[in-house]
Amino acid sequence: MSDSKLEELEIRLLLEAVFEKYGYDFRDYAMASVRRRILSFMEIHKIEKISELIPLVLHNKKTFNLFIKRLSITVTEMFRDPFVYKFIRENVIDILRTYPFIKVWHAGCASGEEVYSLAILLKEEGLLERTQIYATDFNNIALNKAKEGIFDIKNIKKYSVNYRDAGGKDSLSSYYHSKYDSVMMNNELKKNITFANHNLITDTVFGEMHLIFCRNVMIYFNKELQGKVFDLFDKSLIPRGFLCLGSKESLKFSTIEEKYNTLGLKERVYQKLS
């Protein structure tokens, strides 16, 4: 057995162990990314072989928590890819406006920066009051951070630029108050957001959505899993509902592609056909 085959086997056993014991399923993740995260975890914790990790994650809850954090946390920012928010403001909002009540699902919201971005946009368009945003993630640590809505002040300058490029109508500073090294998002934004644990791989449909926002989550999945999650989104969207993906993700070659109209190619905004 070659070294790389052996390593593949070790990763498979490790992910199987994590799934069997804790229910977190990374088995259908894009292997190159998972592997890199596992190896970087091993480097930090001075672990030589992947298989040595198995007893550690099975018997040591603390190590497991750190491991799961390393395996699942992604980096995001407020108004990431401002042109996407601008596009939504200019092309999607007016259609959403025609509904008496709007449901938005932000799937894989991580630490929440983009959830608040969307809430700000909806508020400025006068829609937040009649919108219910479901912000979900399978990682409770990230989810709690999102719920708190407290972000590092050192990133605010960049976020403000993004906000402006996204077509912001006010000043980003009207949506948070700063304290020491942090900013805290205003409660009026949080009022209509429900933060909840939801696992895209194991959990199912929980509502009929007008807009699903899921950015830079699919890139971490393999093709098969991508297909399953696209199906889940398709089942969760109302006819003429919108799906917004990360700027390098696409419905191209997916099984639901033909049921959707590409509204913004660069922005990766799709609309379900009626």
Binding site: A32, R36, I219
Partner: peptide
């Protein structure tokens, strides 16, 4: 990154050497 089946894999993981994309990340994979 590159997968073992010689397809590309993208990630938005933290910057490496202050960079995203990082050359080290591609080279290792």
């Amino acid at each position: 990154l590159i997968e073992s089946d010689k397809t590309f894999c993208l990630s938005v993981d933290q910057r490496i050497n202050y960079a995203r994309p990082s050359i080290d990340v591609l080279f290792y994979s």
